[in-house]
Amino acid sequence: MKLKKIASLVLAGLMAVSMLAGCGDNSNSNNNGTVVEPSNSTIIVDAANDAQDPANKVKVTFTSDAKLLSALQDAIELKAVDFDGIRMLTGANVVAQLPTLKATDTSPDEVVETMLVVREVRDALNETAAAKMAGKVVNEIVEDLKKNTLNDSDKAGTKYYACSYEGTIVMASSTDIAGHVTYYVAGTITRTAAKKTLER
């Protein structure tokens, strides 16, 4: 009888230890054995900031975002890693791409809009390689961003928007039961456009 009690206590102790060990782990495992893990936030943030060409007209400073990372991990588990999936999970009012701005007397003095970018990174050897591949995509997007809405032909008195940008970026990965790792990146770029009048 004592042996049964001792065995029960040992089993209970082992269960408690295993539960505690799981508490500090940010990875998730879904029903089909796929393990979803967050990536090192510094790696993807540094890659997004460092990959931007100095010749770009604007520079976007990226930071990490815990809410976006959580949504990305949820989206991976739900197999909904796309624009609509992330947008619904964050509840954010975001667009697929930043629309063209035009400033007139009746336009608002300030326009703030956020663009969401979601990418699956294939064929990356590791987390650092995936981040560098994502950084190249970030640069392609940033190099198309405009500093303002002015044209060379604009004259004094013309209304225009001066634009500033900030961004967030996160990365997570999934490992299937065969050990194959897929990386996913989600990021936002927020444009703040302030209306001004050209003086020459």
Rank of each mutant, 00 (worst) to 15 (best):
A172D: 01
L69C: 03
T63N: 05
L3A: 11
N49H: 10
V45C: 04
L101E: 05
G22N: 04
I141D: 15
D82K: 02
T149L: 04
S153H: 07
G33R: 05
D84I: 02
R87L: 07
F83R: 02
N148M: 00
K147M: 14
K4D: 12
T61A: 12
E110D: 09
T42C: 00
P54W: 07
A103G: 05
N31A: 06
L9A: 12
S41W: 00
L72H: 07
T63W: 00
T168P: 01
N31M: 13
T192G: 09
V112G: 02
V36K: 04
D65W: 13
V94Q: 04
T188D: 06
T175S: 11
Q97R: 06
L78Y: 08
V185N: 02
D25T: 15
K196H: 02
T188Q: 04
S164Y: 06
D53C: 07
D25K: 15
V45E: 03
I189R: 04
S18L: 08
V17N: 04
E113P: 05
A51F: 07
R200L: 15
L89Y: 10
T63I: 15
K195A: 07
E77H: 09
A75F: 01
K4I: 04
L68H: 03
A186C: 14
M19D: 14
Q97P: 05
V10L: 13
L145A: 09
P108G: 01
K196Y: 02
A194E: 13
H180R: 11
K4Y: 10
Y160P: 11
R122V: 15
V117F: 11
S153W: 07
P99A: 13
S153R: 11
G91E: 03
D82C: 09
L78V: 07
T192K: 10
I189W: 11
D25S: 10
V17W: 11
D84M: 06
V58Y: 08
V45P: 09
S173M: 10
L20E: 08
D25C: 03
D25F: 09
F83E: 01
A130V: 02
D123H: 14
G167P: 01
A96I: 12
R191D: 02
V60N: 10
A51T: 08
A129K: 08
V170K: 08
V117T: 10
S29V: 14
A48P: 01
V112R: 04
N30D: 08
T90W: 12
T149S: 13
V94T: 05
Y161R: 07
T100Y: 11
G33L: 02
D84E: 10
Y160T: 12
R87A: 14
E110I: 07
